[in-house]
């Protein structure tokens, strides 16, 4: 690469990273400022972080909301990994006649926006509430169930399974492993990076999920973090410093998980079997 090209590439990259990092910086800086400084666009760190945190803890039930979000996200992620990988594996490894038709219908379902599903889904959970109140409206389980897996995740696992060496499966069968044994003892460990990438995607989507928890969770004790932040922002005179502090706290878990699994994530997105 010529020197000029290098300069060009680097300057584009630097500008692009500034643009994507700036909102984060602003969020963190704003969490240390008082509301009127935030509205005036102050970019320097201030001394109000402690005050903002205290206000936040006094105004809302932050810890229970974090716990609710954590329960929902972890449950969703574990269930989604299990179901989506089994489905993706099945679609790729086992042969049957209607397989591709079913898979195409599944992919088509990706095109239906959630907003269109919401009313029938809510009605369904309303009816379930009459029979099984522990998984009906206003339970965390109801927030988990419709999101336990997505067509995209199944597709993602199927695509990655395409690169999985089928010969190993044969070897496993010959050595007397059952089909489930093959899946859990051979497939799962080999596809670790795919699982990592899928887990990050699912966890983030679930942690930030807004619309379904909003309609299905009614009591304040079951509030998740995005709902809590939405409430903070809806007042006539919002305390922006406090809201920014809440957003920083809400971002930490996803950021942490992403950084911990970053290496696997990148590998998983590139295709897991080398």
């Amino acid at each position: 690469m010529s020197k000029f090209n290098k300069i060009f590439v680097y300057s584009v990259l630097i500008i692009a990273s500034l643009v994507s990092v700036f909102p984060f910086l602003w969020m963190i800086v704003s969490a240390t400022n008082k509301s009127s400084d935030v509205t005036q666009g102050r970019l320097l760190p201030g001394s109000h972080l402690f005050e903002n945190v205290t206000n936040l803890l006094n105004t809302v039930e932050l810890v229970p909301a974090l716990m609710n979000s954590a329960k929902i996200s972890i449950a969703t992620t574990i269930l989604a990994m299990l179901i989506a990988s089994l489905a993706g594996y099945g679609f790729e490894i086992f042969q049957s006649r209607g397989k591709d038709i079913v898979f195409n219908i599944l992919l088509l379902s990706m095109m239906i926006p959630f907003a269109a599903l919401m009313v029938p889904l809510f009605r369904m959970f309303g009816d379930i509430s009459g029979v099984l109140p522990m998984i009906g409206i206003d339970t965390l389980t109801a927030a988990v169930l419709p999101t336990v897996t997505t067509a995209f995740l199944i597709f993602f696992f199927r695509q990655n399974t395409k690169m999985f060496p089928k010969e190993i499966l044969e070897a496993g069968r010959m050595d007397g492993l059952g089909e489930l044994g093959i899946f859990f003892k051979i497939y799962v460990p080999t596809m670790k990076t795919t699982y990592a990438a899928a887990a990050i995607i699912t966890f983030m989507a679930s942690w930030n999920n807004y619309l379904w928890p909003l309609v299905v969770l009614q009591s304040p004790e079951k509030q998740t973090i995005p709902l809590l932040i939405s409430n903070l922002g809806s007042s006539y005179s919002p305390d922006f410093g406090m809201i920014m502090t809440a957003i920083v706290i809400a971002t930490l878990p996803t950021a942490l998980i992403f950084f911990l699994m970053q290496k696997h994530f990148v590998a998983g997105m590139m295709g897991s079997v080398k």
Binding site: L82, P133, F184, Q218
Partner: peptide, 28 residues
């Protein structure tokens, strides 16, 4: 097989944890 069982067990536990507490209150 142990792994399968523990996997399922964890999932069930997670769901149970989610629904805990909800049955004691009546829906608003």
């Amino acid at each position: 097989m142990k792994k399968v069982l523990s996997f399922l067990l964890i999932s069930v536990l997670m769901l149970a944890a989610c629904s805990s507490g909800s049955d004691t209150e009546s829906t608003s």
